[in-house]
Every structure is written in C-alpha cells, then in structure tokens.
Design a protein around this nucleic acid. Structure first.
Lengths: 196, 196
DNA sequence: CCTGATTCTTATCACAAATCAAGATGTTCC
DNA sequence: GGAACATCTTGATTTGTGATAAGAATCAGG
C-alpha cells in the first residue's frame, strides 16, 4: 500500500473504493536532490504529498539570498496553496533536499476528491493545519530570540535537526550559519543537551 | 442592509432567503476602543467580521512586549482560525483600536452556513486568503529590510497608515517606534513621498 | 480652555547579529 | 586514496537596531 493511501485511510473515513476512484489518475514522481519543483512567480499547479525524502520551500530576496520557509519530510504536504487556489504567481520556490518520492496532486484530483465529504472535510483540516503552522512560525519570528527559535526548532522537528545541514536550519531561523554556530557553542557551554 | 449582508450577497451567490436563514441567530456587537475580545491561551469561540471600526491581533513575548500580528479594518475577518477550528489555546490576543461594530460568527453559524455550497466555497476562499496574507507577511519578515517592510506596508494598507499610531505600525513591522522614526526620516531625506 | 497623557522625534550608548576572513573538518566522486 | 568541494567553527570588525532618556508636538477629557 502506498504511503499516501495508508495516510488517507488512516486520517479520514474514506473507503477503499472511494480511494481507488479519486486516485485512479494520480501519479507518483521520483525526484533527485537539488531538483526544483516550483519556481517563485510561476503558477503552482501541483501540490505534493511527500511519501519519502525531504523537500523545502524558500524565497530569494533582492540581494539574492535564500530564506527557507518550510521543510517537508515524509507525510507532509507542500505546495503554494495560494498560487494553486487563486492561480497567482507562487510566493516561493520548492526544491528537493533528499532524493524523494512524491504523490502529485493536481486540480482534477482535488475537484474529484472534494466531492467526497470525508475528503473535503479532511482537506479543510489540512488547510487549518497549514494556517496553524504559518501562525506559529510568524509568532516565533516576531516574538522570540534566535536562541529561543533554535530551541523551539529542535523540539518541534527533532529528526530534521540531524537530516538537514546547519546552514539550512540557520536560514529557516532567519540567521546566518555563523550565528547559529555561536548559539550552539553557547548552549553547549551552558551544558544544554539535545534529546534529553 | 447590514455591511455583512451586503458583503456576503456581493461576494457569493447566496440568496436573500438563504442569508436570512443562516443569520437568524447572529448578533452584532458594539465594542469600545481598548476592549479585549480574545486572550492568548483561551479558546477562540467566535470569529469576527468587522462592519465598522478597527481591530488588531497581537502576541505578548516572554519579556512582556506586544507584537502586532494583523490589523482588521472594515470588511475584514479576524479570529484565531486555529483555535476556533481545533479548540486549541489561542495563539494571540484580539482587541479594539477604534470603537467598532462586529458581526459575531460562532460555531452554530458556520455549521449551518457550510451546508450551503456557495457559502462553503466562499469560506474556503477566505481560508486561502488568510493563508496568502500569512505567507506574504512571513516572506516580508524573513526576506525584507525594515525599510522595505515599511514601504510595503504603506502601499498595501494606505488607509491604515493614517488611522493607526506609528508605534503600532512599528510593532507590526517588528521594529521599535524609534527605528521607524529613523526610517521615516531617512525616506524623507531621500525625498520619498507617500501617496504620489 | 487648560492640564496631563500620549505620541513622535532626536540623541547617545550598548549590544546582537551580519559581514568578512581564515582555518579546520567532513564529504563526494573520480 | 587524493583532489575538489561543502560545511562548520572561530576571530575581528562593522552595522543596524534596541534601550534609555529627554524634549516637542499632538490629543483627550474635565
């Protein structure tokens, strides 16, 4: 059974028959490290469900510097919901951090699946989850220090801490790799131990 | 006709009859400047549609400092969607900047209204709009300088610029009022003119 | 009105983080 | 195994913003 099927059957009350029907035209895609799946200012016409591997979304500022918005490991959704829904230019890039396998979800899929109330309800839940994630991220950025944001990150995404290079974590936290290195050094000095 | 009725009939294909039916138990609430409508860590059980006036949402950090998340003038929605939907503690406060009149939308309203497809579709659109707003806000915070954020703000919310005190704009931008004052001075020196 | 409170500006000082630079360590791939 | 590259750390310096304080301008209420 695919990761996506297992996920949907577990999270919703969709039946096997309904699942078969709405996913009959779905495809999975294998992508390699470094591959770009969405470019800023392009229309996002697909939302991805990560079956294995790791993706990220990020913007590039006027100075050409990357700023990571989100990581998407196994069983996460990623895509520019705004661009997908409104057919507007995407607000960020999406690319591949590890070789990954994705379920590719397009408009025909959502149109068909949303006819099933249990999927439609679940999709609404996913949207609310997305809102929560963005809101928490926003709160941390405006209200917490770099050190607090780092501690929050390793608590919230413990397995990512080991999987992504530190310069990406720094980018996600909104600081430079040098600053993150110093924060880690200071935490070590204060005898802080991760995973305790 | 209430601002809310006018808004809904204009933005959706809801009929007058349907409107009457779903809103029969709705109430409007008049609130005064300074009144707190939602407290962080409490459950958000109402979403507000602002008919007149101006609200804001904000968090308070560990040091006790406010950070404004959002302004909500006429015809805007405000509420902690996450707390409302998941029954979780709210991530921010909501209070009143100007005396305002609100349409108070609770769970019974949404339960009834979502039975009407044209409302349900519209609600999904509102959620996507919210996601877009949060995403743009996030992008600005991580990728733009304080000056860029200020210029973006006065372009995006020209009428708010005149209605809210500058220390609130500074709080929204994630800087101190002093820093905003310096930025404005510098912009004036560079001969920048708003509303040209 | 007048008074007190709030808001905005300006100045000085301090500090956190960015930048610049160099070295050390680790990884990939031929 | 070694070359080439990427990553992480550390140090020196600069820069932007915060903290604090004080004065000017504006606003609100008795």
């Amino acid at each position: 059974m695919s990761v996506f099927k297992n996920y949907l059957l577990q999270k919703t009350s969709i039946t096997e028959d309904e699942y078969s029907k709405i996913t009959e035209n779905l495809i999975t895609r294998k992508v390699s490290k470094g591959e770009i799946l969405l470019r800023q200012d392009k229309i996002c016409s697909e939302v991805y469900f990560v079956q294995s591997g790791l993706l990220r979304s990020y913007t590039i500022d006027h100075a050409g510097k990357e700023h990571i918005i989100q990581f998407a490991p196994e069983e996460w959704w990623i895509g520019d919901r705004n661009s997908f829904y409104f057919n507007e230019p995407a607000l960020f890039f999406i690319d591949c951090i590890e070789d990954s396998e994705l379920m590719v979800l397009n408009h025909p899929f959502f149109d068909a699946a949303n006819l099933i109330p249990s999927f439609s309800d679940f999709n609404t839940k996913v949207l609310h989850n997305h809102i929560r994630t963005l809101q928490i991220r926003l709160n941390m950025l405006v209200a917490a220090t770099a050190e607090e944001r780092y501690l929050d990150f390793i608590e919230r995404y413990p397995n990512l801490t080991l999987r992504v290079p530190q310069w990406m974590i720094a980018s996600y936290l909104g600081i430079t790799p040098e600053s993150l290195s110093r924060i880690r050094k200071e935490l070590a000095r204060k005898n802080f131990k991760p995973h305790s």
